[in-house]
Design a binder for these strands. Structure first.
Length: 805
DNA sequence: AGCACGCCGACT
DNA sequence: GTCGGCGTGCTC
């Protein structure tokens, strides 16, 4: 086993293959697949992943591995497999897939340095560069560039006095703590203490201290406190060999200063029992299976998760729980930490790079048994997985919108298959894809339709904003909402106001009849383009002029839509000056911890109204909230996205669930210009099943998922013409490669037609069964390879896209 | 991605 | 004659 196949950290088509390296004799039995190494690559050094160890190299002129970065492989054999699967299913580079499975801190940082070849060359350096090497024998390339002395250095390099060195370092550092312990036994220590010269009073005392303790290790701070020992005393005793130092890895614990109240398993309702039984059975049997737990808000899904995990841990196995952007729900972390204490690692975007790395290390070192985290936590390096849970399965944040464009649900199922363990998908509003699979029997449906505390679902009323306008109310608050808000303030109860900011973009709607202009071929809203006063469809490229009157009712009040939280806050202050308002949006939650602060302020009753966007829709649970208002339910409904109705229904249901979760019953007011729309009407009725049926019909009619699969090819180019012609060529190429039954739409301008001065066109592929697809798309990449290198053509491929932009 | 090699125009 | 433009191709 003399050679290693390495995937190098150079994300490019030409380097997306293993390179063989010789393993230096000293590391022969040390290097294993999954380890990160540093290898020479051309003139520089790069990081790479060992994917294979072999007796012979496939290449005659191998070079040697220069550094080993891991003692234990950072990618387990199974995760290496997951990596290969990722490249195949998302068409990304191998290195991109591997990189995505590790915390950012482990990504290499590359630095160029200029090194003095030999100490004695220092005096031979020319006058202009010598000053830079007076105190050191290296000098950062970037500094040299700034100082403008590169040409001078070049000359010295040619003379052989200096050399260019490529340094590979890590972003995050392991945090270690120094512990001091005795190097001898207690008797020997006592003897040593007696032989200490009289002037070494402190050393003598410290030795005596150690001779009285058994086999304990202390940090220097502890010694300072316990024995008044200074660091210099410790050091000289270490030097004399009486004491020894020990470096132990320590963790930055983001939750160190927080106490989690220990909780006990609650007794389950009959429904919960019914749901947990089949899960426990699969855990017991060690069998792969996918469950879809469809449970209304407040039905106690989390308790089912907790008790299932309990069973997994009892079998000595590990579990992964995915939650959407967990930073937003400290309440969720609390529930897991409360039940499983220090067995839990938490991975989410609110942690620093170092903190994330530490949590990851805890998993790798098997110090935790459970990880709760956002999307990428699906790659937690557990080796004995017993269950994977995906909470709020419908959340779109489970799909990564950059390479590798994977969906955590797919990765979960792939891993669970390998580990023979169950996957539990939970949601009050499952995606149509998952629910359809459950109906077909691919997944097992578990249903929780009652709320744990038997509270009725909140009363939802829909306010027709067209009516308000007719009555002369031009503010963004309907009479009813305003009245109810005032009522809550008076009663000392709290309200949540939800503004859907997404879709601020520009769909066009009639303020009188609520008619939104749609594409005749795609059943999605057209987008308004100021340039040329045109309406465009981003799917098929259809175009039409912006009408001056509503095509439906001939009203002149037709215009495009959008508003922001700040404006709402101002208006609220005008109409309801007595209310104390907390506003939560990107502006007010920018700083780390600001989020939690605002939420806890609201929780302790420092405000009457919580006003916010998306981020307040999830997982909040405040007993005193009895009113939820949705200011404009339509904004999302008319996004150019075939999932718009689904997302609207999910969001409205989600938001409604924030009201009346405890003793006080709740009420929801939804303001809309399209009250008759089924996704709004069915929210009022709390009827997911009806929504599912209706939406499925439309999906079938327009050939969208789950009836068809989608693939999105986005072409970008510095010139408009280049983008157009390349995308046209791609479309015709694909038409030749793929089956007749596969639909290829476009090319059409991307919803964001120009980013960074690059024009973007896209085409969408709809297919049912297409074995050729991956091969055809790979072929596209290959065929346009030269153009991609030469004229700055870019091709991005998203299989099963979520965001169609 | 970097970087070197290599082949054509404007300069000491 | 050379410096330097960036097209081309390679990196185990």
């Amino acid at each position: 086993m003399n050679f290693a196949s390495v995937i190098v950290d150079v994300p490019a088509k030409q380097t997306d293959k293993p390179f063989d390296y010789e393993i230096p004799a000293a590391w022969k039995n040390l290097i294993k697949p999954g380890m990160r190494v540093v290898v020479p690559f051309g003139p520089r050094k790069v990081q790479g992943f060992v994917i294979d160890i072999k007796e012979e190299a496939d290449y005659p002129k191998t070079r040697k591995i220069v550094e080993v970065l891991d003692l234990t492989p950072s990618l387990t054999p199974e995760l290496l497999e997951v990596g290969h699967w990722l490249t195949e299913t998302t068409l990304c580079f191998k290195i991109t897939a591997f990189g995505a499975m590790l915390p950012a801190a482990m990504k290499a940082k590359y630095e160029k340095e200029i090194l003095l070849v030999k100490e004695e060359f220092r005096d031979s350096l020319s006058q202009d560069v010598q000053p830079y090497f007076i105190n050191s024998n290296s000098f950062a390339w970037s500094e040299a560039e700034k100082a403008g002395i590169l040409p001078n250095l070049q000359k010295e390099i040619e003379k052989g006095l200096l050399e260019v060195y490529y340094k590979v370092s890590q972003k995050g550092n392991r945090k270690t703590t120094r512990y001091i312990k005795a190097a001898l036994n207690q008797k020997q220590l006592l003897e040593a203490a007696e032989e200490m010269p009289a002037q070494a009073r402190k050393q003598k005392e410290l030795l005596e201290f150690f001779s009285e303790t058994e086999d304990a290790a202390f940090t220097s701070q502890e010694l300072q406190a316990a024995a008044a020992a200074s660091d210099s005393t410790i050091r000289s005793l270490v030097k004399k060999g009486f004491l020894q130092e020990e470096w132990v890895e320590s963790y930055r614990d983001p939750y160190a200063d927080r106490r989690f109240e220990q909780t006990e398993p609650l007794s389950l309702t009959e429904e919960q029992e019914g749901a947990i039984k089949p899960i426990l059975q699969k855990v017991e049997d060690g069998q792969h299976h996918v469950f879809l737990m469809y449970g209304v808000t407040g039905s106690g899904k989390t308790e089912v998760y907790l008790q299932s995990i309990e069973a997994v841990l009892q079998k000595g196995k590990e579990a992964i729980v995915l939650v959407p952007e967990i930073a937003l729900t400290p309440q969720m972390v609390e529930r897991f930490k409360g039940r499983f204490g220090s067995l839990v690692a938490v991975l989410h975007s609110g942690l620093s790079t170092g903190e994330k790395y530490d949590e990851w290390r805890k998993i790798q070192r098997k110090e935790v048994k459970l990880v709760v985290g956002a999307r990428s936590a699906i790659f937690a390096p557990f080796e004995n997985l017993g269950m994977i849970i995906i909470d709020e399965e419908h959340e779109t944040s489970y799909k990564q919108e950059e390479n590798p464009r994977y969906h955590a649900r797919d990765a979960a199922i792939f891993r669970a298959r390998k580990h023979n363990c169950p996957v539990v998908l939970g949601s009050a509003t499952p995606t149509l894809e998952s629910f359809a699979r459950a109906k077909k029997g691919n997944y097992e449906l578990l249903s929780l339709q009652g709320r744990v505390n038997s509270r009725p679902m909140p009363e939802v009323s829909i306010v027709d904003m067209r009516e308000e306008l007719r009555k002369g109310n031009r503010t963004m608050f309907s009479t009813e909402l305003l009245e109810q808000l005032r009522n809550r303030v008076e009663k000392g109860q709290q309200s949540v106001l939800f503004l859907n900011k997404r879709g601020y973009s520009s769909f066009v709607m009639c303020r009188d009849c609520g008619y939104a202009i749609q594409c005749p071929h795609c059943d999605i809203s057209l987008t308004y383009h100021r340039s040329g006063q045109q309406l465009k469809c981003h799917y098929c490229g259809h175009e039409e002029p912006m009408p001056s009157v509503c095509p439906e009712c001939s009203s002149e009040h037709i215009r495009f839509f959008g508003t922001g939280t700040q404006k709402v806050e101002e208006e609220l202050a005008k109409v309801l000056p007595e209310a104390r308002v907390i506003r939560m949006d990107v502006d007010t939650t920018g700083r780390k911890g600001a989020h939690e602060k605002l939420l806890s302020a609201f929780g302790t009753g420092e405000a009457d109204i919580l006003l916010g966007t998306q981020m307040i829709a999830k997982g909040l649970d405040f007993p005193k909230v009895t009113l939820v208002g949705v200011l404009a339910a339509d904004t999302m409904l008319h996004l150019p996205d075939f999932r718009a109705s689904e997302k609207t229904f999910q969001l409205l249901t989600q938001v409604s669930g924030r009201a009346g979760r405890h003793l006080l019953s709740g009420e929801v007011i939804i303001q809309t210009y399209t009250p008759e729309h089924y996704s709004i009407q069915l929210t009022k009725q709390h009827n997911y099943l009806a929504f599912y049926e209706q939406e499925m019909q439309l999906r079938k009619q327009y050939a969208y998922p789950p009836f068809y699969y989608l693939a999105l090819v986005t072409v970008s180019h510095p010139d408009l013409l280049g983008a157009v012609s390349a995308s046209e060529k791609i479309v015709s190429f694909l038409q030749a490669q793929l089956q007749v039954s596969t639909q290829i739409l476009g090319p059409a301008a991307s919803p964001i037609p120009r980013i960074n001065n690059r024009y973007r066109y896209q085409c969408m592929i709809k297919y049912k069964r297409e074995n050729n697809l991956a091969a055809a798309l790979k072929a596209v990449n290959e065929r346009f390879q030269q153009e991609m290198q030469q004229n700055g053509l870019g091709i991005s491929i998203d299989l099963n896209p979520y965001q169609l932009m």
